[in-house]
Structures are given as structure tokens and as C-alpha cells.
């Protein structure tokens, strides 16, 4: 093996890589937040008996969970583009990730909700609580404990999937890495560093989420 590593060029471009990493984190956090909000609505719609809402939610979930993420991003960028709706790479990737996150999290929320016995609700009501109090203090806190880890996994997944942004020319960590390596031909060095940065980002997310869990759930999780 006579490959010679040249790390200097990578370190010279560190500010740009860090900037890409920030965009990666940015788009994933936003995709997660929006995904959670939509997933709550979809989960309610799916558990609801009103047909049209339930239908929309089911179609959403089925498409999101059974087609490749790459396909979703292409649809958002090139597909909508064909209809004259031109999204920036950032918005295209963000919408695709929100779409998928919402699809997966809907099922997570629905499962979490249905795993809380209805007797917990009766017991709360029997103590004189209003429905809102029963959900606020009894049902939702228990549900949150159960779905916390699946939610964290979804977050990590969407950080890693945002690397597909490379395919539509988004300047997140992978896109930036791709551009810099093609300018310098130090492919291996740049991608090794990018991989390490992804690793650090996801580990940081997992670490802070377990810290948060400890605060929220008092070491119960």
C-alpha cells in the first residue's frame, strides 16, 4: 500500500466542513421538530373514526414507510420541479425528511398511545381529573417514556439520511465533503473526516438525549 495521506488540506478546509456539519444538524433538527408535530396530528387522525382524515394519514404513512428516502428527495427536488415548483436543495431535503419522519413517528406515537391501558384513564377520571388533566399528567407522560428511544433513533436516522442531500447539490456535510474532495483529489481523507464528524454528531445527540431523559424521567428509563 503506497497511498500517502495528506491531512493538511482537510484541516485547511475545516471551517467549511464545520459549516456543512452545522447545516446537517440544522436540517435534521428542523425535520425532527416538524415531523413530530405532523406525526401527532396524523396519529390522532389515524385513531379517529372520521374517514377522510384517517385515509389521508394511512396513505401518508404507507408511502413514507415503504419507499426509499432517495426517491422522496428526488420527488421533492426534480418531481415537483417538473410541475414548476422549484424548491431549493435545502427545502427539498427538509420536506422529504419531514415526510418520512412524520410517517414513521405516526406509527410510533399510535403504538405508544395504545400501549397505555385505558384503565389508567378511568383511574384518573375517578379521582376527579378532567380529561385534559388525565392526558397531561397520566397518559402522555407514560407514553413519552415508551416512545422516547424510538424517537431518538428516528432523529439519528434523519441525521444520517440528510447525507442524501449530496444528490441534489445541498451544501450539508456530505455535499461539502464531495465538493472539497473533487477540488483536491484527497477523497479518502475528506470522507474519513466527514465520517468521524457524523459519528460525533450522532453520539452528541444520543448523549444529550439520554441526559434529557434522565432529567425528565428521573432515571426511570
Amino acid at each position: 500500500m503506497d497511498y500517502e495521506f495528506h491531512w493538511n488540506i482537510v484541516f485547511q478546509n475545516m471551517p467549511e466542513l464545520l459549516n456543512g456539519a452545522f447545516v446537517t444538524l440544522h436540517v435534521s433538527v428542523l425535520a425532527m421538530l416538524l415531523g413530530v408535530v405532523i406525526a401527532i396530528l396524523l396519529a390522532i387522525a389515524k385513531m379517529n373514526n372520521s374517514k377522510p382524515f384517517c385515509y389521508v394519514a394511512t396513505v401518508w404513512v404507507e408511502i413514507a414507510r415503504n419507499t426509499p428516502a432517495l426517491f422522496q428527495i428526488y420527488m421533492a427536488y426534480f418531481g415537483l420541479g417538473a410541475f414548476g415548483i422549484h424548491l431549493s436543495p435545502y427545502v427539498a431535503v427538509l420536506s422529504a425528511l419531514v415526510f418520512i419522519n412524520a410517517g414513521y413517528l405516526t406509527e410510533t406515537f399510535r403504538g405508544g398511545f395504545q400501549s397505555i391501558p385505558t384503565t389508567q384513564y378511568s383511574a384518573s377520571k375517578s379521582l376527579g381529573m378532567t380529561s385534559i388533566q388525565a392526558y397531561r399528567y397520566i397518559i402522555l407522560p407514560q407514553m413519552l417514556r415508551r416512545i422516547y428511544h424510538p424517537m431518538t433513533n428516528q432523529f439519528v436516522w434523519s441525521i444520517l439520511m440528510s447525507s442524501l442531500g449530496i444528490l441534489v447539490g445541498m451544501s450539508e456535510l456530505s455535499g461539502t465533503t464531495q465538493r472539497l474532495q473533487s477540488l483536491s483529489f484527497r477523497t479518502l481523507e475528506f470522507f474519513i473526516v466527514a465520517a468521524v464528524m457524523y459519528f460525533i454528531i450522532t453520539k452528541l445527540v444520543l448523549f444529550s438525549s439520554s441526559l434529557l431523559a434522565r432529567r425528565l424521567f428521573k432515571g426511570e428509563i
Binding site: P117, K125, S126, L127, G128, Q142
Partner: peptide, 14 residues
């Protein structure tokens, strides 16, 4: 219901 305490077969502790 505040007047009526209720205890269930499956205790239902939180």
C-alpha cells in the same frame, strides 16, 4: 367524582 372515591380490581397505580 371528587366525592366518590373508587378503587379498582387492577389497582391502576400510576
Amino acid at each position: 367524582r371528587q366525592k366518590l372515591g373508587m378503587v379498582f380490581q387492577q389497582w391502576n397505580s400510576f
